[in-house]
């Protein structure tokens, strides 16, 4: 299809390149999905053959990418008016909306069926639920209707470690739910910190993010409330045997810093300084989640190496 007749401001009229389709899958979001799903798989009791583990991880990654493409298809009308999203492939006219829809749908169906057939249907069903939740519940229903959009919609981003866990165990247990809850509780303060300094963007396109609807002060209050809920949930893996002492220390120290930053956001309400502390919290929240899951992964790897006698062999 000749794109130059379709979209004004198209950069090139030669059709989409492979890289444009990769960009549709939101690679940065995918990297966090891969990582959290991997931690879910590694933390689960028992084991999965490395080949099957690789397949499970690939399916979860592709499924997440597919939902990203479908999200970009649906949100193309507002993406082109927001600074953060204007450079996405559809607003730039590099990929047509129809191509994005087909791409996302084919990858969604393929990833779910492959995960279900080759690994197990609990994981397959959870992946299908994740994609459906992100597209139908978050993108189509909640995002443009309620300031609670990212609170409820955040569940979609919280499923990957649970899917990883289910891929290994074939079921859902309290540990998988706790991993889910950490990301679920982390999402609101993370996104609201971003929304505080991107408020005008959301306002312009009519997305009712909390700062737009309830104002920045209420958003700051909610950030503190959700941070207070997040920190104990993030420490809880230690108490159910999912994390060890290193995890307890890391989650406590980083949790204290998270709370301190949230309180700074609450107190700093005027001028550039307000934007600066919100950006600080946003950046730290990404590091926080990454660090928590990295420590869980590190502890688990160390346990496995000890179980295999690697350290014993070295010290003997």
């Amino acid at each position: 299809m000749a794109l130059e007749t379709q979209v004004e401001g198209t950069e090139i009229g030669a059709g989409p390149g492979v890289g444009d389709f990769v960009a549709l899958m939101k690679p940065r979001v995918m990297s966090l999905v891969v990582f959290t799903a991997l931690v879910g798989m590694m933390a689960a009791p028992g084991g999965l053959h490395p080949v099957l583990g690789f397949i499970a991880l690939l399916c979860i990654t592709v499924g997440a990418g597919a939902s990203g493409a479908l999200n970009m298809w649906y949100d193309a009308d507002i993406d082109r008016h927001m600074a953060r999203t204007a450079a996405r492939p559809i607003p730039r006219g590099l990929v047509s909306a129809g191509e994005a829809l087909t791409f996302g749908t084919v990858l969604s169906v393929t990833s779910v069926l492959t995960l279900g057939v080759l690994i197990n249907w609990t994981a397959g069903a959870l992946l299908a639920l994740t994609i459906a939740f992100y597209i139908f519940v978050y993108t189509m229903w909640l995002k443009r209707r309620t300031p609670q959009n990212i609170v409820i919609g955040g569940a979609a981003g919280a499923f990957p470690p649970m899917i990883g866990w289910a891929a290994v165990t074939g079921g859902v247990s309290i540990e998988g739910i706790v991993l889910f809850l950490i990301i679920f509780m982390w999402t609101p303060p993370h996104f609201w910190a971003l929304a505080l300094y991107r408020c005008r963007d959301y306002e312009r396109v009519g997305v009712p993010m909390l700062p737009v609807v309830a104002g920045p002060d209420e958003t700051r209050r909610q950030i503190v409330i959700y941070s207070l809920l997040l920190v104990p949930v993030a420490i809880s893996p230690y108490f159910i045997g999912l994390g060890g002492l290193a995890y307890l220390v890391t989650s406590s120290v980083l949790g204290a810093i998270f709370l301190w930053l949230a309180v700074r956001v609450y107190r700093t309400r005027e001028g550039r300084e307000a934007d600066r502390v919100a950006k600080q919290l946003f950046a730290f929240s990404i590091f926080y989640l990454f660090a928590l899951f990295a420590v869980l992964l590190g502890e688990n790897l160390a346990e496995r190496l000890i179980a295999w006698g690697v350290f014993g062999g070295l010290t003997a």
Binding site: A14, G15, P16, G17, V18, F21
Partner: peptide
Amino acid sequence: RVKRQRLR
């Protein structure tokens, strides 16, 4: 266009 089609 031909190049991109081939790569796709």
